[in-house]
């Protein structure tokens, strides 16, 4: 990443989501499963380290702000075709400022799911299957 994850979220100093973003980034940095970080035009994504060598291993969690004052973690897989713009979304989990305590558990369930290749049976309970924002094209 050329920017820090915090910079990538693009929050102003007094934006209440900044504290939430710091919390999420710290938990991700503490994660026992090594993660690789990717810059996005808005926000950042994480994936399991070393996944590039596995044909089916391509799950990503994309953290970005939505227009309802939340931070979304969008679960998706990019196409396996290098030229394709397609993305295979599994849904999104919203995080709200001021609810960091519950966010820890949600984040852990997301990371477990990431590790298990987004198996349908292991989907986090609070995951929303539909995505309420139009995602940028990157």
């Amino acid at each position: 990443m050329t920017r820090s994850p915090r910079e990538a979220m693009g929050f102003e100093k007094d934006d209440p989501r900044g504290t939430l973003a710091d919390f999420l980034i710290e938990r991700l940095q503490e994660c026992t499963v090594p993660l690789e970080w990717e810059d996005r035009s808005i926000g950042f994504a994480v994936r399991r380290a070393g996944d590039d060598e596995r044909p089916a291993g391509r799950p990503r969690l994309w953290f970005l702000p939505d227009d309802r004052g939340r931070i979304l973690a969008v679960a998706y897989k990019p196409s396996r075709l290098t030229f394709s713009r397609d993305r295979f979304a599994y849904g999104a989990l919203p995080f709200r400022p001021g609810q960091e305590a519950g966010a820890r558990e949600d984040l852990e369930s997301l990371l477990r799911w990431l590790h298990e290749d987004f198996k349908p049976a292991l989907r986090p309970a609070r995951l929303q299957r539909t995505i309420s924002v139009t995602l940028p094209s990157d």
Partner: peptide
Amino acid sequence: PKNCRFCTTGANVGVNEVA
């Protein structure tokens, strides 16, 4: 959700096309 179990439309609108 009561989506058809084979379908991905709900997870797709907004991701690959405008809503």
